[in-house]
């Protein structure tokens, strides 16, 4: 007993030392924070921009306005999520241990899913821009592929928890594997599937607001442009627009998800 205790203390001390070391390393390498004389000025202009946004930018019949940017952003998120919701299905089945009996296939698919998951969406978008050119299209593809990792993981793990007794009953009626999955497994995972897809949609809306920063479409493009020309009123209205849109989507999607389960 006593030895256990001293071992525990030693381990604690080691952990503390390690954490301290990480912090010393992290902070010692930092450049000093120096406020440029313009910093405060910029901060106050951003706030005043937020308080007195450029309302004329909200709607411009000629096109390049806030509404269009936000709609583009939503459209990218929606299409990306829609594509991902289909792409993730085969991966989900093949990564579920109780559905796919072949361990090698399950392992490969779990690996692919975690690989996609650690891949930042924005890097995917960079690659797609190189492949298909800048624009909303590459943004859609980036979100469509990027979301497969998380959706596949959530859905396959959900599937691993389903009750498989009904599957036996379906096999006994002479159903082939596809029909068996369709009747015995899918009804059990469908509500959660929709819920996960909606949740991912919320994430994708946020992600889509930044795609434009690298040229993959949406509201990010005018924002980065306004920032670079220091048009703070415009920055203000765009930020407001993003905040309102994201909040609304969160609320709506959250309400639907609450009803699903």
């Amino acid at each position: 007993m006593k030895r256990d205790k001293s071992l525990l203390i030693i381990r604690r001390v080691l952990v503390v030392i390690a954490v301290l070391a990480v912090y010393i390393w992290a902070f010692s390498g930092l450049p000093v924070l120096q406020f440029k004389e313009t910093s405060m000025e910029v901060i106050s202009s951003i706030f005043s921009g937020l308080l007195q946004p450029d309302w004329t930018y909200v709607y411009d019949p000629k096109g390049e306005d806030l509404l269009r940017g936000l709609l583009d952003t939503l459209a990218i998120a929606l299409l990306g999520t829609f594509i991902a919701s289909f792409l993730c299905i085969p991966f989900s089945f093949m990564a579920a241990r109780n559905i796919m009996k072949n361990k090698a296939i399950v392992g490969t698919n779990k690996f692919i899913l975690s690989f996609i998951r650690v891949f930042p969406d924005i890097v995917l978008a960079l690659l797609f821009i190189k492949a298909v050119g800048p624009g909303a299209f590459s943004g859609v593809l980036a979100l469509g592929i990027g979301a497969v990792g998380m959706l596949g993981k959530l859905i396959s793990e959900d599937m691993e928890g389903v009750d498989l007794s009904a599957r036996e009953a379906l096999v006994a009626t002479g159903a082939n594997p596809v029909k068996t999955l369709m009747f015995a497994v899918i009804p059990q995972v469908l509500p959660n599937f929709f819920s996960f897809v909606l949740y991912r949609f919320e994430i994708n809306v946020r992600a889509a607001t930044i795609l434009g920063i690298i040229g993959a479409g949406g509201i990010g493009t005018p924002l980065i442009f306004a920032l670079s020309v220091r048009d703070w009123e415009r920055v203000g209205i765009i930020l407001l627009g993003i905040i309102v849109m994201v909040t609304m989507i969160d609320i709506i999607s959250g309400k639907i998800r609450a009803r699903l389960t």
Binding site: D163, A166, E168, V171, T173, G174, N176, A184, Q188
Partner: peptide
Amino acid sequence: TDLYRIRRDIGMIFQHFNLVKRS
């Protein structure tokens, strides 16, 4: 398919019913 055909003519009832509970 032959196996599925034969099984089609055989019904099965289980101790724990094996229904799809959500359906």
